[in-house]
Each structure stands twice: as C-alpha cells, then as structure tokens.
Amino acid sequence: MAEQEENSMIGYDPLAWMHEAEEEESPTRSAPLSAALPDDSAIFDDDMADAGVETEPGAALNAADLQPSADAETTGRIILEPLQNIQTVSQLHQQLRCMLDSCNKIDIDASAVSQIDTATLQLLLVLKLTAVKLRKEVNIDFPSEKFMEAADLLGVSEMLSVDQAVSGFF
C-alpha cells in the first residue's frame, strides 16, 4: 500500500496504482494454464459447483484470449466473444479461473456480446461473488444492449453491477 512520507498530510495515496501500472512490465504467463490451481480458483470452482454450473475442468485454454494489461499482476482483462453459451462456458470458466488466480482485479469487456445464455451469466455472477469473498474486484465494462437485456431478464443486473452501467456504445 503506497503511503506518503511522514510529514505529508496525505496518508494512503489513492493514485499510487497509476505509477505501479506504468512501471510494471506486462509479463507473459509462463506457467501452464492447466497447472494445479491454488486456493483462489478452487473457491471459484466450489462456488460454481454449488451453483449447479457444470464445466469441464480439463477444457483446452486459449492463452491468446487472455489479455493481461500493463499491470497484469494486479489487473486482468478479458473480452467476451459475441456468442456466449453452454458450448463456450467451460472455456470461459477456465480463463476466469486463471485470472482470478493471478490478478487482484478483472475487467471484463462485454461490449461485443450479441447473445448470452443463463449459464454464462451464472458463471459471471459466481465470479463476482467469489471475488468479493477473496477481496478482489471484478468489473463488467461496456455491457452491450443484449447483455443488459439478458441480465435484466434474469434479475441479476444489480448483482453484476451493470444496472447503472453505460451500455450500447458499440
């Protein structure tokens, strides 16, 4: 936690992340994504099972889909594909599991979503709830109209924190 020098009237520096983001190189993920997962993702898996979402733990991962940002050790970024359904949810689960492991914050770009099913929304919901438990942050950015419609229909837009989100930009 970045704190100012002793004589300063400012204790915790809320802008410190800006320098950290600039200073940190974006490291490539060298560890195999299918490697044994530590506790954080295990909690996510347990929560998924509790929620009744079936995923395939061994699903192949596409590392290119993961977009570590400049401050990759703290923030992960992922772009949702236009079509999000039961066929793609396992892969998304794996990706998010890995990110939850290595990042303190996950930004999910939902601007391109043109179709999304309940399984994916449930996955995102469990991710949000798991992140809260782990004191991590998950943001769903720029949700498309279709994303918003589906979230509203299921009554989860507030829980996903997209009820006040700006949508329909793209």
């Binding site: 109209e145 918003m148 419609e149 949508s167 329909g168 930009f169 793209f170």
Partner: peptide, 11 residues
C-alpha cells in the same frame, strides 16, 4: 435513460 436496442447511445 434511453434503452433502445441497437442504438449507439455513447456516440
């Protein structure tokens, strides 16, 4: 408060 489907409200 516009919520028209498909509209590009940000632009």
């Amino acid at each position: 408060q516009l919520r028209e489907s498909g509209s590009h409200r940000g632009d």
